[in-house]
Design a protein around this nucleic acid. Structure first.
Lengths: 365, 365
DNA sequence: TTGAAAGCGCTAACAT
DNA sequence: ATGTTAGCGCTTTCAA
C-alpha cells in the first residue's frame, strides 16, 4: 500500500490553518519567530534561552493572550501547576475549613487548586468505588498532586497510587494503616484534656457521644476519654457511651438517650461540634439548662461553636493549619524529595467557653 | 537525510513495553484482542460494534481496572464528563449552597463536578485576571462546560468563550450585560416584598443596608426597596441607606451608624443574611431588642438565619435550585442544543420568622 | 464491523 | 542557544 510521503499529511492541522479559536504553542512560536521548543522552554523557565529570545517569546505570549493547555501539558509528561483536594462534601464546615488552609498555602506557592467531592452522598453505596475512579482520573490527567480529606478509598488503591510515585497526602485519614504522608491532629490527647477538664470540675458521670469508630479520629477520641477516666480512677461505665456518627442528628438522639438513663450524666462530651450542637438541641428540648444542669464539651471548634448559647467549650483542632501543612508536605514531594514520608501531627487545644460549670454536689445540700 | 521507515521508531512506547503503571487504551485493546478504535467505540457507546466484541472489551476493561484519561480524551476532541463550577470562595454558605444544588444535578446526569475558586482573596487585585486565565485553562483542558457563580471576569472574555461554542452558564451574575445563558433570582421583587411587609407592620422609617452595588443583586435589591417605598408614598430618605458589601462586618457597622442617627429607623432591611447577622450583633451590643425595639429582615435564607435569636425573617433565594437549574441549562447545551440562550429567573419568597414586629406607635401612648 | 493512522497541544530527548 | 521530532492516551476520519 502506498503511504509514502506521510509528511504531506492530507489534512492540515487546525493550528496551521486559518484563524484559530484559541492560540496554541505553535501560534506563539510563529508569532515570535522561533520554534515550539524554545517557547516551551520559556514557558517552563528552563535555562539555555537567550535573554532577548526569552523576552520576544514573552511578548508574543502576551500579544496573543496565550495560556498553556494543562491537559496537553500533563499528557506530555509535564506539570499542570494544579493541586487537587478531595473532600467528603462541599458542605460541612469541617472540610471547608481545611480547604481554606489548603487554598492559602497553595496560593502562596503559586499553584492552583481544584476541589473534588468524592461522594456527595456520604458513606453511600458506591462511594469508595467512585473515589477510586477519581483518584485515577485526577492523578493521571488533571493534577500534579492529591490531598485527600478523610479518604474512603481502600488503602490498596491509595498505596499503589503512591508507589507509582504520585504525590499523595492524607488529611485526617481514617483507619488506613499505611505509612503514606499524612497530617492528623492529636485526637487522643485532645479528648484526654477535655475529659480531664470535666473531671477537674468535679464531674464523675460523664456521658460520651462517639463519632464513627472506624475513623481514626473517632476511635482515638474515645480512647482519650477512657484514658482520662482510668487515670482519675473513675470506673468506665459503658452505658454512658453512646455510639454516634459525627452528625448533628446523632448527637441529638444520643443526648436524649443519655439523659433518660436512670442515673443520667452531669456532663456530656461529644466527639465533634456538630453532634454537640445536636446534644444542645436535645438538652434544650428536655428543659435542661447548659451549663447549670449539665455541662457540654465538643470537638473541632468550627465557627458555629462560638455562637451557640451558651458558647461551646470545645477542643480546637487546627483545621486550617492541617490543610496548610499538608500542602507543605506535598510541595516537598513535588520538588523531588520523594523521600518525605512524614506523618505530621498537630496539637489540639481546649477552648474553654461557657458550656461547662463545676458540679453542684447534691450530697452537700 | 534518511528518515525512512519511520515505523521502526527507535523507541518503544511506554504502553507497549514491559509492565505499565496505569493501563491505557492500548493495554485494553491488547487484552481484548481488538484495536484501540474498537475500544474507543465501546468506551463512547458508539454503534457499529458487535455485541460480542463490546462485551469482550468491557470485560477487559474490568479486568484491568481501566479508567480513561480525561486529559487525553479532551485533547483528542472528546468529552471529559466533567463540569466545572467556579465560585468566589470555598467559605461563604451562599456559594456552597449553590454548589450543593449543582452537585446534585450533576450526579443525576452522571457527570462529575470540579470546583474552582476564582480568587480566594475576594475582590483583590488580580482577581479578574486570574479568573480570565482559569476560564481558558478549564475550558480548554479540563471540563466540558463551565458554571460561574458571580463571575468577575470581564464580559468580553466570557462572551468570546461562549462564542467559541464553549458551554457557559452564569449564576447570579454581576453587572455583565450580555445575553449569555444565566440563572438569577428575582432580587428586585424579593426586596419589594420584604419592604412591603415591613411597611404593612406600620414601619415608616426603614433603614437599608446595601450590598455591593456593582452587583446586579445588590442594585436590584436597593431598587426593590425604593420601589416599595414609592408605592406606599413614603418619601425616600438617603440617610437611611448605608452602603455595605454583603459582609457581616459591614452589616455591623451599618446598623451602628443607622441607630445613631438623630431619628433612627424602627426597622432595618439588610441586603443579605450575612450583613443582617452583623446588624443583629450591633443591635445587641447597643442594648436594643429585636424585634421589640427594632425589626430586622435579611436576604438569602442561609441556614444560619433560622438559628439566630430571634430567628431571622428573610427573603429566601432558592440557591440550591439555582445551581440545579444551571446544570439543566448547560446539559441542554452539551447535548447539542446550542440555541439555548435562556435567562432563567427563579422566584424568591419571604420567610417570616421572629425578627419583626408591628411598630409600637409612640404617639399612641 | 473492524483496523490503521493522523492528529489534539505540549514536553523532552536528541541534534545541530 | 535553538530546532526537530517522537511520543503522551485518546478520538476520529478513512479504508478495508
Amino acid at each position: 500500500m502506498d503511504r509514502g510521503r506521510p509528511e504531506m499529511g492530507r489534512q492540515r492541522t487546525r493550528a496551521s490553518s486559518g484563524r484559530n479559536v484559541s492560540p496554541t504553542i505553535v501560534d506563539v512560536a510563529r508569532e515570535a519567530g522561533v520554534s515550539v521548543s524554545t517557547v516551551s522552554r520559556v514557558l517552563n523557565n528552563k535555562p539555555d534561552v537567550a535573554q532577548a529570545t526569552r523576552e520576544a517569546v514573552r511578548a508574543a505570549i502576551r500579544r496573543l493572550g496565550y495560556v498553556a493547555n494543562p491537559s496537553a501539558r500533563r499528557l506530555a509528561g509535564g506539570r499542570t501547576g494544579i493541586i487537587g483536594l478531595v473532600v467528603p462534601d462541599f458542605i460541612t464546615p469541617y472540610a471547608m475549613e481545611i480547604a481554606r488552609g489548603v487554598g492559602e498555602a497553595v496560593r502562596e506557592a503559586s499553584y492552583d487548586l481544584i476541589l473534588y467531592s468524592a461522594g456527595q452522598g456520604r458513606e453511600n453505596h458506591r462511594g469508595e468505588e467512585r473515589e477510586h475512579a477519581w483518584l485515577n482520573i485526577l492523578s493521571r490527567g488533571l493534577v500534579d498532586g492529591l490531598l485527600l480529606v478523610l479518604p474512603r478509598s481502600s488503602g490498596e488503591a491509595l498505596i499503589s497510587l503512591a508507589h507509582r510515585g504520585f504525590p499523595v497526602v492524607l488529611i485526617d485519614h481514617r483507619g488506613i494503616d499505611t505509612d503514606l504522608p499524612s497530617v492528623v491532629a492529636t485526637n487522643r490527647e485532645g479528648a484526654l484534656e477535655a475529659t480531664r477538664y470535666l473531671l477537674s470540675l468535679g464531674h464523675r458521670r460523664i456521658g460520651f457521644i462517639t463519632g464513627l469508630l472506624n475513623y481514626h479520629a473517632g476511635a482515638d477520641r474515645l480512647a482519650g476519654y477512657r484514658e482520662a477516666l482510668a487515670q482519675a480512677g473513675v470506673p468506665y461505665d459503658p452505658s454512658l457511651v453512646i455510639e454516634g456518627n459525627f452528625r448533628r442528628q446523632s448527637g441529638y438522639e444520643a443526648a436524649l438517650a443519655l439523659m433518660r438513663l436512670p442515673d443520667p450524666p452531669t456532663a456530656i462530651f461529644a466527639s465533634n461540634d456538630e453532634s454537640a450542637l445536636g446534644a444542645l438541641d436535645a438538652l434544650r428540648d428536655l428543659g435542661l439548662r447548659v451549663p447549670d444542669d449539665v455541662s457540654l464539651v465538643g470537638f473541632d471548634d468550627i465557627s458555629a461553636a462560638a455562637e451557640t448559647r451558651p458558647p461551646l467549650t470545645t477542643v480546637r483542632q487546627p483545621l486550617m493549619e492541617m490543610g496548610y501543612q499538608a500542602v507543605q508536605l506535598i510541595l516537598a514531594m513535588l520538588n523531588g524529595r520523594s523521600d518525605v514520608m512524614q506523618q505530621i501531627q498537630l496539637p489540639t487545644r481546649l477552648i474553654v467557653r461557657g458550656s461547662c460549670s463545676p458540679l453542684q454536689s447534691p450530697q452537700e445540700h
